[in-house]
Amino acid sequence: MNIFRLLGDISHLLAIIILLRKIWMSRSCAGISGKSQLLFGLVYTTRYLDLITSYISLYNSVMKVVFLAASYATIYLMYVKFKATYDHNHDTFRIEFLVVPAVALALLINHDFQVVEILWTFSIYLESVAILPQLFMVSKTGEAESITSHYLFALGVYRGLYLLNWIYRFWAEDHYDLIAIVAGVVQTVLYCDFFYLYITKVLRGKKLQLPA
């Protein structure tokens, strides 16, 4: 494992913790897209099925369990415990527009036509666009709480760091996975507009507010 990969994983972990903590401490999931969280739950579930079938390392297994548990916990808090605070009027992105193409693409473009491999590929494609309901919600309300912005920043940076990891691995190990790389580029590009707003506004102490 190289430094970019490690920092990417830490950033990913940090994002998940920031979100869970925000919901728990404020007893509210206002401003958070339940649909994006459902999609992430689906992403982790379909990608980490190999947790049962193959052992890679303790680090790998622990991280997978943590991501799965945190994702399910977030969904539970949003849809059960703090359901009353869930802002579903603003969470109107049609997720079938993301899930159906991700399934189709996974069936068409994959490394191996086998169930576990297709589910992995689906999870990679779906992850790249899973944040769209959340970004759509922010654009609809025109603003985001600072803590939500920190969450989005950490989540966006994670795949960006993976891109550096893949560049490094291509150079150092001659290893590359085009499916992950292309999806990772798409995923990171989707955050660019947000990164700009985060750096120019949130880091200067201002609330993230979109121009009217």
Partner: peptide, 10 residues
């Protein structure tokens, strides 16, 4: 010969 698929990454 393609590289074996690396599933170590998360």
């Amino acid at each position: 010969q393609p590289e074996p698929i690396d599933k170590d990454e998360l």
